[in-house]
Design a binder for these strands. Structure first.
Length: 348
DNA sequence: AAGTCGGGGTG
DNA sequence: CACCCAGACTT
């Protein structure tokens, strides 16, 4: 039995993975689910999908929404440029296609936030077009079954896997096949400990025969991690709090935060030095001052150490933009990085 | 072609 | 702790 036939067979006999958008024909819902699920586990993305569909049942609702509200709904999901591109593309489709999702692959992949994987997913799920998806699951399944030792994250590997994926696509039912191979990778051909003993493809699996299961797929890129030290000053004047939006090309772009000072070494803010710093910066002493313990967060490429310093002042420092002061009760309307979000939940 | 973008699950 | 997840964009 061919690989393709086996995957289809497994799907009809053993695959019982269910997802709310599975079998959906509305390209808007398929697109939304695919953007949310980029580099994100289904279980993690699911509640966000539900929230978005509830708040934005159609692409027009999303296009008409305020940025800040959409980012608030995305808060905690990570990779925030996905959210920015989602909004941009919703508005683009409303403007240029009367809100009707384009139906051919070339137009789909042209859209912001949609790359080869997402374009193939939309084209095959929504329009039954013969484009093979290539995601982390597919790389793993193909590399093991066919014994491909070329690194899947190299330019050469990407070409080999793209051709292999397309060659094995079931052109008559591309949507069903694409869904099936990803479900297979997510439930049977698992990354660390695959369920080879209950895999109906195991007798033809090259990696299993050669003892390469725990080596494939091969990845060559090495993850570089850097450590950063953030001190967030939570300035407060009566019930007004200072916040700012992150704009630089950096982590958490477009989210909000408190006044940030980043330092090279480990931050060590004693009361005295904060007082001096405030005096130098703003010619004011704090009325009250509270320093949090040093918190940390592990990101994919960065380790963040962070400390919050709450400072009550008599008046707003003229150096800080007046428009950035916000009533405390409106803090919940803005999307914050996880560290700030947790700080807010614990302190306000 | 290489770097960068989050947060959570898993072994 | 390291690795991975329905990847895409920037330089």
């Amino acid at each position: 039995m061919s690989f393709t036939t086996s995957i289809i067979s497994w799907n009809s006999s053993e695959n019982n993975r269910s997802m709310p958008w599975k079998g959906a024909k509305d390209p808007y819902k398929i697109w939304l689910s695919e953007i949310i699920l980029q580099q994100t586990r289904v279980a993690q993305g699911l509640p966000y999908y539900e929230k978005f569909i509830q708040n934005f049942p159609t692409i027009f609702d999303l296009a008409n929404a305020e940025d800040q509200f959409v980012f608030k709904l995305w808060e905690g999901l990570g990779y925030y440029n996905r959210c920015r591109n989602l909004l941009f593309t919703a508005r683009y489709i409303v403007e240029n296609y009367d809100g009707i999702f384009p139906k051919n692959y070339e137009q789909i992949i042209e859209l912001k936030g949609i790359g080869p994987y997402t374009a193939a997913a939309i084209a095959s799920f929504a329009f039954q077009l013969p484009y093979a998806v290539l995601d982390g699951n597919v790389y793993r399944v193909l590399s093991r079954y066919f014994g491909i030792e070329t690194p899947s994250d190299s330019p050469e590997g990407e070409k080999i896997f793209a051709k292999l994926a397309q060659d094995n696509l079931d052109k008559k039912k591309p949507g069903v096949y694409n869904q099936a191979i990803m479900d297979f990778g997510a439930t049977i051909c698992l990354p660390a400990i695959p369920k080879c003993n209950q895999c109906i493809l195991s007798k033809d699996c090259t990696a299993l025969a050669l003892g390469l299961i725990n080596k494939l797929p091969i990845k060559e890129k090495i993850l570089k991690k850097k450590t950063r030290y953030f001190t967030w000053f939570v300035f407060r004047v009566n019930d007004q709090i200072f916040i700012q939006q992150r704009r630089a090309k950096d982590i958490w772009e477009n989210l909000y935060e408190f006044f940030l000072v980043e330092s090279e070494g480990k931050p060590n803010w004693e009361n005295k030095s904060v007082n001096e710093w405030l005096e130098n910066q703003f010619k004011q002493h704090p009325k009250e001052l509270e320093i949090s313990p040093v918190l940390s967060q592990q990101l994919t490429h960065q380790k963040i150490f962070a400390q919050f310093i709450q400072i009550s002042l008599d008046r707003m420092p003229v150096q800080l933009p007046k428009a950035n002061w916000l009533n405390i009760k409106n803090l919940t309307h803005f999307g914050f990085p996880k560290l700030c979000k947790e700080f807010i939940e614990q302190n306000f």
